[in-house]
């Protein structure tokens, strides 16, 4: 875990990987991909950091408590976005029928609640991947 070339290459590549993951999450309703694949890509960038620089430095970046909070926030955010339709007097997860402005087709801010729901699911998947990795690596004998 003390390879100079490996550390510098990961430090160079990681910002672009995270950018790609967030791009896939945010463009889930316009292009191939979506919350699940984008979340896995974002989570894998954090896993790669922990693999190369060590678990301790990974925990310094994002602690386990913050990771659990993000994970819970993703699930609660999905439920809250679904309740928008209920509060407007229609069914759960109703989008256009609940009076949400849809925007211009083909632009980033279109599709109403889909972008917000996708963001929550992406956060949930990314933090779940990192939590899974940490749980597997920290298992005591």
């Amino acid at each position: 875990m003390t390879d100079f070339v490996l550390k510098r290459m990961v430090a160079l590549v990681l910002p672009f990987v995270q950018m790609l993951g967030l791009y896939v999450i945010f463009h889930g309703h316009l292009s191939p991909g979506g919350s699940f694949s984008g979340g896995i890509i974002t989570g894998l960038s954090l896993i790669a950091f922990s693999l190369v620089f060590g678990l301790e430095r990974g925990h310094e970046k994002i602690s386990e408590r913050l990771m659990g909070l993000i994970e819970s926030f993703g699930a609660l955010w999905y439920g809250a976005m679904g309740l928008v339709g209920v509060l407007r007097g229609t069914t759960f997860l109703m989008n256009k029928g609940a009076g949400v402005p849809l925007g211009e087709p083909g632009r980033l801010f279109s599709g109403g609640l889909i972008l917000l729901i996708t963001l929550g699911v992406g956060l949930k998947v990314a933090s779940t991947m990192v939590t899974l990795f940490n749980a597997l690596m920290e298992e005591e004998e």
Binding site: G33, F36, S37, I40, I41, G43, L44, I47, M129
Partner: peptide
Amino acid sequence: TEAAAGIG
């Protein structure tokens, strides 16, 4: 999805 999940 398959590529990302497989590598993960």
